[in-house]
């Protein structure tokens, strides 16, 4: 997905993990994924750079689709679609 598409995508759930460092955001994502349906999109807000690399790997292992990341001011949003 392009940056523009990502910015306008409709998310079923937004996880704000900006207050936690590695591996906090990953744990928050794992906890939240159970509450959405297959095909739903979830965004994860994080200020931890490592998470940007970790989330695609997590998606790859669980079979979820990684859609991309958008840079914001001082943090970023990672988008993924549940399997």
């Amino acid at each position: 997905m392009t940056q523009e598409e990502l910015k306008n995508v409709e998310v079923a759930k937004s996880v704000d993990a900006r207050g936690t460092a590695c591996p906090g955001p990953l744990l928050e994502a794992k906890k939240a994924i159970g509450s959405i349906k297959a095909g739903d999109i979830m965004e994860i807000l994080s200020a931890d750079e490592g998470t940007k690399v970790d989330i695609p790997k997590w998606c790859g292992k669980q079979g979820h689709e990684y859609l991309g990341a958008v840079e914001e001011n001082g943090y970023f949003k990672v988008y993924m679609k549940k399997k």
């Binding site: 590695c22 591996p23 744990l27 997590w58 292992k61």
Partner: peptide
């Protein structure tokens, strides 16, 4: 503990 938690997050 960090590695353990990360692994657990990955199921």
């Amino acid at each position: 503990m960090i590695i353990a938690l990360a692994a657990s997050a990955m199921d």
